[in-house]
């Protein structure tokens, strides 16, 4: 036979086009709108922080593979780029380079590679880095530049809406009075508020969510459930006492709820595998976020909430089985 040899393999003989590099590319594209808003608001600082973070994360993964694990570098799968972007999204845009470097090393080194690389890490790497930085450099991590597009790297800094709220309430002021000092909900929605790089605009993040749902990269279960949980729970408290608790819309639009629900909690590796599990996980994230925000010491609790729920994922995966066919009793 002149023909070259036939290939033989077990079925199936065709495969979906949505492979890991494709998925990662899709997530990166979904993050672009939020990044653009951030660049618009913070100018060069956003570009600088994001660029460095991606560079350090990918570099860390490459170096760890090459020199420590002595295996083929795995950065081509794109997951290090996402970790870098997410880390940048979770920090202020005026963070000095050495803090970004430390954050990247912790994210990739401790958060991911120490467990065996992509797929084996129990906690979201970017959040591990973020929380590490928050605990180690509390001042740098909480002095957010204000949302004015400045093309220089220094700008005025201030607190986030959530921070203003928390401090105000501690000082004995009421919510309606505090609300007077804040931008409008439309401003929150389109991203004119202080805060971390990626959590500026709910609108931009929702575009990203829409894109990921359209590409079938993620399902609706985690983001929708988590946002709904935060909304409902803060709504209940608001209903009880609107002078002590802010409105549910305020809670959903400010801080990291959108970013967390759309990009952090949905991370494949650190979220449950079944739909039932995803919903349970997302409810947990939402409840913990609200509890930390309303009653905890920190003004914001999304990172901690997701990290705590990450720890429950193996348990959820083991005990929440999907509905089996033909095994109804």
């Amino acid at each position: 036979m002149s023909q070259s040899l036939l290939t033989v393999a077990p079925s199936p003989h065709i495969h979906t086009e949505l492979t890991i590099p494709q998925v990662m590319r899709g997530v990166i594209i979904a993050m672009v709108p939020a990044l653009l808003v951030s660049v618009y608001n913070f100018g060069l600082g956003a570009v600088y922080v994001t660029g460095l973070s991606i560079l350090f994360c990918a570099g860390a993964e490459w170096a760890i593979c090459k020199f420590l694990l002595k295996r083929e570098p795995t950065i081509t799968d794109g997951s290090a780029v996402i970790t870098g972007m997410l880390l940048a999204f979770n920090v202020p845009s005026n963070l000095p380079w050495y803090i970004i470097l430390i954050g990247s090393l912790v994210s990739v080194g401790i958060g991911k590679m120490s467990f065996g690389g992509l797929g084996n890490n129990p906690f979201n790497p970017a959040l591990v880095g973020r929380v590490f930085l928050l605990l180690s450099f509390p001042v740098e991590m909480t002095s957010w530049p204000q949302a004015v597009a400045t093309w220089s790297l220094d700008g005025t800094t201030g607190a986030t809406p959530l921070g203003i709220l928390k401090d105000g309430l501690r000082a004995g002021e009421t919510v309606p009075a505090l609300m007077q000092q804040m931008p409008s909900y439309t401003d929150f929605f389109f991203g004119f508020q202080g805060g971390s790089l990626g959590e500026m605009s709910a609108f931009a993040l929702l575009i990203g969510l829409g894109y990921m749902l359209y590409r079938k990269i993620i399902t609706w279960h985690i983001p929708v459930t988590m946002i709904a949980t935060v909304f409902v729970m803060t709504g209940i408290f608001w209903f009880i006492d609107p002078t002590r608790f802010a409105s549910p819309l305020f809670h959903v639009l400010t801080g990291g709820v959108m970013l967390g629900a759309i990009f952090m909690a949905t991370d494949y590796v650190t979220s449950p595998v079944s739909h039932k599990g995803m919903i349970l996980f997302a409810i947990g994230c939402g409840v913990l976020t609200v509890l930390i925000r309303l009653f905890g010491a920190y003004p914001e609790g999304v990172s901690f909430a997701i990290l705590i729920m990450n720890a429950f994922v193996p348990l959820i995966n083991t005990y929440l089985k999907p509905v089996r066919y033909g095994r109804k009793k």
Binding site: L5, L6, T7, V8, A9, P10
Partner: peptide, 9 residues
């Protein structure tokens, strides 16, 4: 001699 190429796990 090989008569085909195996491409499975």
């Amino acid at each position: 001699k090989k008569t085909n190429v195996y491409d499975g796990a």
